[in-house]
Design a protein around this nucleic acid. Structure first.
Length: 571
RNA sequence: CGGGGCGUAGCGCAGCUUGGUUUAGCGCGCCUGCCUUGGGAGCAGGAGGUCGCCGGUUCAAAUCCGGCCGCCCCGACCA
């Protein structure tokens, strides 16, 4: 490809609306252009990179026997009503009507469509397992799109769905997928970690997220530094051992104390001269229509995903102030578990071993002191509903946990039978029984992976593509296109490399060298070959590795061979 | 949806507080010519704007007021 024909509109200045490097660089390198909030056009360079990621994904999916299909972006509301997600999915589901006023959705994911696809033709266990995947545009009406293509509303995703005869069969597919995902991200040249995660609204039990390690990542990952243990999970899911104190105290008699206008943990603590860890905080939630009280230690946060799982609830949100006032008989800020009626109590496991703690009194401007579990109140449900913090102890090996940030580029779920039961998708098993499929679903954010690759591979001058994702492997840069000797060498190196099947970009623009070099660094081609009169006097051209900046003078005569050799070293 | 901010040439911005001396300006980019050619050169000339949209105030509005639209940032969501 010749640069003069390639449409790579690079820009010097960062776009005003970009926050993170990948967004800035993708715009500056002429890879994409914003059309509206969270929606982008991919320009030729951006598209080529995207296709590279897609191809890697495609090869790894095919390798484990998944079959590619192509489902529509638009799907009728009926399918979503069948599984109930029409009501549960929320605002993020982009709904629209056709000219006949019939309801449709722009697919954010395709469980319904794919389940509908197989529920007729697949009748026998002999046809299983079956795994279908597609690479398709998805739409999620994000509350707040940001960071360019990292959190867009429209994005390209690979989504795969497996139909298995039973749990053991699903386990095998899940394991294959796990392996395929590791292969995909390894081939993309990314530093990543598979971590345990929450299954969210999609439902199901076991799930892993694949995190690309990056400071700008939106996800917190908690991990165990002990290599043999290697426990890693998202902050929504991670479990830990939270050390308790003061367990040696003798229980003292329950007392009520006046705490005028002391609503927050901090206020109560400074007023009563105690540590937050001696408080039990009580937060009221609305869970599938029922009001529940969640209890955890004062210095900790309630994890809504954990709470939702503990309750097996679909919809969970904090109760509104009126509900709180009605049920506690007090202003917000004075709720407590003692004597709280009509509310199901969910206690974090740490709460059960606390001694002489402080809680709200369910009376405005009063708190209770010397509250003790079992004696004064009990949880209807006890579990882990607290957000993990760095410094907690590993649930598996006891080591002190650490935290890092990551970009979630993929997630694999064991769905179970949620969708197959809801949609009556069944097959006949070996015993002749009609049985719902046991399903799994597996996603990779393609466009997000492109952005993640840039987050992880750039410097002050621009992108440094991992060779497997680079839009071109070699950039041939003649210093002056007006110089005939320079151009004839450039052309022969270019055509020589093309003939070897190398993806080459020839910068044939009549620009000053500085401009070309800056653009070269910006678009991040792994190997640049510079041809100028200076080198030609010695009979050489210069090969420069983008990542290291290392240069090699190679003789003109066998330039193509030398460049091929250097290329193989870059890989 | 709550809070904050922005909308002026292809891009990045100034001007707005205190309306008219601004024919609306600057940098980058773009076009022509000369010159230059190993890290975003120089000189000369040039093109490009319904100042987001609608309405109001005024002799006069980019500037003041109201409404609407779009975009960005911070919070509650997620591949």
């Amino acid at each position: 490809m010749r640069w003069s024909k390639a449409y790579i509109p690079t820009v010097k200045e960062d776009p005003a609306d970009a926050e993170v490097v990948s967004h800035k660089l993708m715009v500056r390198a002429g890879m994409m252009k914003k059309v509206g909030a969270g929606i982008y056009t991919l320009l030729p360079l951006g598209l080529v990179v995207t296709r590279k990621v897609e191809q890697i994904v495609r090869e790894e999916m095919n390798r484990i026997g998944a079959l590619e299909v192509f489902m529509p972006v638009l799907s009728p509301a009926e399918l979503w009503k069948e599984t109930g997600r029409w009501d549960v999915y929320g605002e993020e589901l982009m709904r629209l009507k056709d000219r006949h006023k019939r309801d449709f959705v722009l697919g954010p994911t395709h469980e319904e469509v794919v389940t509908d696809l197989v529920r007729g033709p697949v009748r026998s266990y002999r046809q299983l397992p079956l795994t279908l995947y597609q690479i398709q545009t998805k739409f999620r009406d994000e509350i707040r799109p940001r960071f360019g293509v990292m959190r867009g509303r429209e994005f390209i995703m690979k989504d795969a769905y497996s139909f298995n005869r039973d749990d053991a069969c699903l386990d095998r597919t899940y394991k294959d997928m796990h392996g395929a995902y590791e292969a995909v991200f390894r081939r993309c040249g990314l530093a990543f970690r598979p971590v345990l995660a929450d299954s969210g609204a999609i439902g199901g039990d076991v799930t892993h997220e694949f995190m690309v390690l990056a400071q700008t990542g939106e996800s917190r990952v908690i991990s165990c530094p002990n290599d043999e243990c290697a426990y890693a999970a998202t902050d929504e899911t991670a479990e830990s051992i939270i050390e308790n104190t003061a367990a040696t105290q003798e229980p003292r008699p329950l007392a009520k104390t006046h705490t005028p206008d002391m609503k927050t943990v901090e206020e109560v603590c400074s007023f009563l001269k105690v540590e937050p860890r001696n408080l039990v905080k009580t937060i009221l939630y609305q869970a599938d229509g029922e009001v529940i009280g969640a209890l955890t230690r004062g210095d900790r946060e309630i994890s809504e995903p954990k709470l939702r799982r503990a309750l097996r609830a679909d919809v969970l949100s904090m109760a509104d102030p009126d509900t709180v006032r009605t049920l506690t008989g007090a202003e917000v800020g004075f709720a407590g578990p003692v004597g709280l009626k009509g509310v199901k109590l969910v206690a974090d496991k740490t709460v059960t071993s606390m001694v002489n703690c402080i809680t709200g009194a369910n009376k405005t401007d009063y708190h209770l002191t010397n509250v003790n579990y079992k004696r004064d109140f009990s949880g209807d449900l006890v579990g882990d509903i607290t957000v993990v913090a760095a410094g907690d102890k590993c649930i598996r090996c006891g080591a002190t946990l650490t935290e890092y940030r990551g970009i979630e580029v993929g997630q694999i779920f064991k769905l179970g039978r949620k969708y197959s039961v809801a949609m009556k998708a069944t097959f006949i098993d070996e015993q002749g029984n009609e049985t719902p499929f046991t399903m799994g679903c597996y996603g990779i954010g393609i466009t997000r992976t492109v952005a993640a690759a840039i987050e992880q591979n750039h410097d002050g001058n621009g992108i440094i593509w991992p060779p497997s994702l680079a839009p071109y492997q070699v950039l041939v840069t003649p210093v002056a296109v007006s110089d005939e000797a320079t151009m004839s060498v450039a052309e022969s190196v270019y055509s020589g490399l093309c003939a070897k099947g190398v993806e080459v970009l020839l910068d044939d623009r009549d620009e000053r060298p500085g401009v070309k070099f800056k653009d070269a660094d910006l678009i991040g081609i792994p190997l640049r070959v510079t041809i100028g009169s200076r080198g030609l006097k010695q009979g050489t051209v210069e090969a420069r590795i983008r990542r290291t900046g290392a240069t090699h003078d190679v003789p003109v005569e066998n330039a193509v061979e030398e460049i091929m050799r250097l290329l193989s070293e870059v890989y």
